[in-house]
Computed example of a mutant assay.
Amino acid sequence: MAHQIIQPEGWAPAKGYANGVLAADGHLFVGGQIGWTVDQKFEAHDFIGQMVQALRNIRAVVEAAGGTPEDIVRLTWYVTDKAEYLAAQADVGRAYREVMGRHFPAMAMVVVSALVEDEAKVEIEATAVLSKA
């Protein structure tokens, strides 16, 4: 098989997209994750809370594919409020390390006018490279 769809156990079904796609060569592409729970509900309404949940979601997809956060090689962040992100930078670093440890892959930050889910303040997509076992 050329690729495998990755869906963490217990997550609400993805509609019209995949949460993760694992290629035969070990490249894992994690679709944009936002700050909602496995039931697709927002429990956090602030930037840091949603960022932490989005990173937890990425971690869950990577782990469901058999990887670890250290396998992540790229993160692309989409934020709706640059000023809110900049004002929270110290908290961003602390919260990031809490979920991902001290692993810092290549990253890009893009400011967007809105995300598809109106309540979302951040969306993060990832690429990981898992060793073929």
Rank of each mutant, 00 (worst) to 15 (best):
F104L: 13
M109E: 11
I34C: 14
V30D: 10
E98W: 04
I72P: 01
R97H: 08
V99Y: 04
D118K: 15
E84S: 13
L86S: 07
R56V: 02
V73D: 06
M100S: 10
R94L: 09
A54F: 04
E43A: 14
V52K: 10
A106P: 00
R74M: 11
A114S: 15
V38K: 15
L115R: 10
M107N: 14
A108I: 05
A95L: 03
A95W: 00
P105V: 08
R59V: 06
P105N: 09
A65M: 00
F42G: 14
A120S: 15
R97N: 09
G66T: 01
L28T: 12
A95T: 02
Y85P: 00
A64F: 03
A83Y: 00
E84R: 09
R74K: 11
I48N: 02
G31C: 14
L55E: 01
V79W: 00
D118R: 12
I58R: 03
A60L: 01
A65S: 02
V79G: 07
A106G: 09
Q53K: 13
A60V: 01
M100C: 11
K41C: 10
V116P: 05
K82N: 07
R74D: 12
A44L: 07
M109I: 14
L115H: 07
S113A: 13
A108M: 09
A64H: 01
V62N: 03
D118A: 15
V122M: 07
H27P: 01
I72D: 04
W36Q: 15
R59K: 14
I72L: 04
N57R: 06
R74Y: 14
Q33F: 08
G93Q: 10
W36I: 06
A108C: 09
